[in-house]
Amino acid sequence: MTVYIAHRLFAAHDRALAADLADRLATKVGPDRVFLPFCDTDEEDLVVEVKGRRLFELDRERLGHLDAMIAILHGPSLDDGVCMEIGYAAASGVPVVVLTSDFQTYSMTEAGAHLEFPDPLLQAVATRIVRVAKLGPPALPPAPRGSRFQAFQARNAAQTNTALDAAVEALLDLPDRASLPAGSPAGMGAPVYFEASPYTAWGRDLLAKACMDAGHTVVVPQRFTAPDPVAGALDDLNAVRSAARLLADVSGPETPPGTALLIGAALASGVRIAAFQPRTTFTHAHGREPNWRNLMIQYAADAHLDNEEAVLSWLAA
């Protein structure tokens, strides 16, 4: 079993958490069967001309040769690179265990069904979700001379340990491959799937109209309006995998998790991808070229568009 651990890279505590998980898993399947990004791509020491692209290529190569994935996701603002990797794995039929210690659940309406994540796509594609939402029990008796802060930290550590062990056990109990149905091949007249940004009120009408004016059939997401959000999410996933193109509006401070997931699924399915972002913002990581989005999003897209004319040119190409 070869396992990819998808996790947020940009803070030391996130990398340490993923390393803890990788170490526990390695004792079960062997260290050579576990791939831990940043660690196993030697990110800080890697020297190449275009570092971000090379890291994308290394991670994508691993994504193409997996038996399973464990993805760590926390909180309502989910890492777009991790979500993209989940989408790639799911569209490839790779089972995905999603680990979270978030104590919130989410719903589309006040009285609606509770979801594990803000976007139902995450719940729809996860083979298993490991959710440990409560602190560990208080120590009895309290440690001598220990502060309440140390006691609280210990309860958080216990919660983390429980979650990591549960994720390993869930992964070892997975089927060999997920049972995701094959997407229909994109033939002549296959639609353009358009994913709007929640950060722009105007994007849906403007870009969808541009696609239709260019003579394309346009498919838009169903999961946020469907009576069953998870069923709607699976419809969205299958629509993207069968589309000729994915036009994803990534405007705003981050790529939304569902959009990132669909970009990964499109890449794995051979669907052409364009990212629309009229107001570009860059991230600057030590030793890398500036990136206009998470590098897994940036290099998955074959076009980066910033105006309607650029959209029309991409559609015509």
Results as ranks from 00 to 15, higher is better:
208 A>P: 03
255 T>A: 15
175 P>I: 09
175 P>K: 09
153 Q>T: 08
153 Q>F: 13
136 G>S: 08
176 D>F: 11
180 L>K: 08
229 P>A: 07
171 L>P: 03
188 M>S: 10
173 D>Y: 02
143 A>G: 14
183 G>I: 00
157 A>I: 02
147 S>A: 05
136 G>C: 07
142 P>H: 00
196 A>S: 13
252 G>K: 11
149 F>E: 15
143 A>M: 07
171 L>C: 09
145 R>Q: 08
219 V>S: 09
156 N>I: 13
211 C>N: 08
147 S>I: 00
134 K>I: 02
214 A>Q: 02
235 D>T: 14
227 P>Q: 07
257 P>D: 06
249 D>N: 15
239 A>L: 08
177 R>D: 02
245 R>F: 07
226 A>W: 05
273 I>E: 09
154 A>F: 00
139 A>W: 02
146 G>H: 01
182 A>T: 10
268 A>G: 06
164 L>D: 00
272 R>D: 10
260 A>L: 12
209 K>G: 07
128 R>P: 01
167 A>V: 00
142 P>W: 01
260 A>G: 05
250 V>L: 13
128 R>K: 12
137 P>A: 10
159 Q>W: 00
272 R>S: 14
170 A>D: 08
272 R>L: 08
248 A>R: 04
253 P>R: 02
247 L>I: 02
246 L>M: 08
135 L>Y: 04
189 G>A: 01
209 K>H: 14
179 S>K: 06
252 G>I: 01
172 L>W: 11
250 V>M: 10
203 G>I: 04
249 D>C: 10
130 V>M: 01
195 E>V: 14
148 R>A: 05
135 L>W: 03
186 A>P: 00
253 P>D: 07
258 G>N: 06
217 T>Q: 12
203 G>E: 03
202 W>A: 10
178 A>W: 14
270 G>Q: 09
248 A>M: 12
128 R>A: 14
205 D>G: 01
149 F>K: 13
213 D>Q: 10
273 I>Q: 11
245 R>C: 01
197 S>F: 08
232 G>H: 01
227 P>S: 01
163 A>S: 02
270 G>Y: 05
270 G>F: 06
187 G>E: 01
161 N>M: 08
144 P>H: 00
258 G>Q: 13
218 V>N: 04
192 V>K: 02
222 Q>V: 01
261 L>S: 07
221 P>M: 14
143 A>F: 02
220 V>P: 13
273 I>V: 13
193 Y>W: 07
256 P>G: 05
176 D>S: 12
166 A>K: 03
165 D>C: 10
269 S>C: 05
271 V>S: 00
194 F>C: 10
159 Q>Y: 04
185 P>S: 04
229 P>C: 03
230 V>R: 11
161 N>C: 05
249 D>G: 08
136 G>H: 04
253 P>N: 01
205 D>Q: 12
266 A>G: 03
238 N>S: 13
142 P>Y: 00
221 P>Y: 11
156 N>R: 15
244 A>C: 03
151 A>F: 06
175 P>V: 09
179 S>G: 06
255 T>W: 11
141 P>R: 01
249 D>H: 11
237 L>P: 15
223 R>C: 02
197 S>T: 07
166 A>T: 01
162 T>Q: 15
164 L>P: 00
270 G>P: 10
174 L>G: 05
167 A>F: 02
